[in-house]
Amino acid sequence: MLVKQLKEITKEHLNQVIEAAVLLVEVKVKTTKTDKRYADVIIQDGSKSMEAKFWDYDEKEDFFSQLSTSEIVVIQALVGEYQGQLQLTIKEIKLAEKNAYQMGDFIPKSEWSLEKLEQGLKYFYDRIESPQLKQLLDEMIFSETHYEKFMTHPAARRVHHNFYHGLVQHTLEVLKFAYTVATTKQLTQRQIDRLIVMTMLHDWAKVIEYKALPDLGFTEQGTMLGHIFLGAHGTLNHMNEIEDFNEDDKLIILNGILGHHGRLEFGSPVLPKSPEAQILHQADIMSGNIESILSFMKEQEGNEESFTGKLWNMGTEYYKKSFEP
């Protein structure tokens, strides 16, 4: 059975063999308890990504070893289920014919237009009054060196906003949530300036931590250092080059970047220590969690059951009829 997009695969296809053109984005070779090698594979197209298994790795070792990064392949796969999630077992795999497909069709993209994303960044940039803080953003986001990467990178590998323009969409969502709280609680203009800047920069270093799409995964710097350290380190270096940069602004913004995960066990080396930093942390959680839930629910729209499967990072299932008008 030919499927045009991975999102078309539902539980109605269980135990059926489907054929699809997909982007092969990650292959991890593993070994069973009986020392048989197999491949854990992540595939994707413009609609979603999925996990798949290829059990006859030894027979195709030469094929996999000759693949370059992110190849478009045609697979035949048996649809199965594991821990409530659909999973594919690849039976046949081959390279797609050259020029038969466009790479852009296999990269998930933000539903927000580029114009809307750029307008949103400008709106919040214009809310800042401090010239030093505007200069910091000019150098770290709006410079020729960083702007394209900031506008195109994903915000995560899998959990949320893991698509083209994902980082800037996530940043704008966090800005909207944070700004609403700040104005509702009547923070001062100086606090709002700092909040906007720390929010714009809280995940800035993901342009260093993650590979550019269509590749998935971490760079060497990302693996060794992580975006929290890289972001704070990069921000401090730029701050130190800006004349008359306020020391309180420096401390509070850096604490916001370092503390935006909110808990030491979640990777932040310090806790949020200002109202601005606490607002950023809460807004960041809201953006990530809601995007994760909505994306998960959309992936299971074809399933007629009332509830989704369990979303692993949230620990629960969701009522699908909430999507109904």
Rank of each mutant, 00 (worst) to 15 (best):
I9M: 07
M286Y: 07
E51T: 12
I257K: 01
Q76P: 10
W55I: 02
V25K: 14
T89E: 00
K320M: 10
Y319A: 04
V79A: 01
N289G: 03
T10L: 13
A212P: 10
K320L: 12
E81C: 00
P131Q: 04
K94M: 03
Y38K: 08
E115N: 04
K48E: 07
K98N: 03
H153F: 14
T10S: 15
V29N: 12
I242G: 04
R37H: 14
T145C: 02
D244R: 14
L172W: 06
L14K: 15
E118S: 00
N240A: 03
T308Q: 02
D138M: 06
T235L: 01
I192C: 13
L114F: 00
K30W: 11
S306T: 00
E111P: 00
T188P: 13
R158Y: 15
D105A: 05
I196E: 10
G222F: 10
A178T: 15
T223R: 14
T31Q: 15
S49C: 11
I42Q: 12
A178I: 15
F177W: 09
M286G: 01
E139D: 04
G256V: 14
K11T: 02
N240T: 01
L258K: 09
M297T: 05
S65Q: 04
I43A: 08
K273C: 09
R157M: 09
Q282G: 02
K28W: 07
L88G: 01
I75S: 03
L175T: 11
D138G: 04
E129W: 02
Q85V: 05
E148G: 07
E220V: 09
Y38D: 01
I196V: 15
Q102M: 05
Y101A: 05
I253V: 13
T145I: 14
E111M: 00
A39H: 09
V174Q: 05
D248I: 07
K310H: 02
L23Y: 10
E148V: 11
T308Y: 13
L6P: 15
G217T: 10
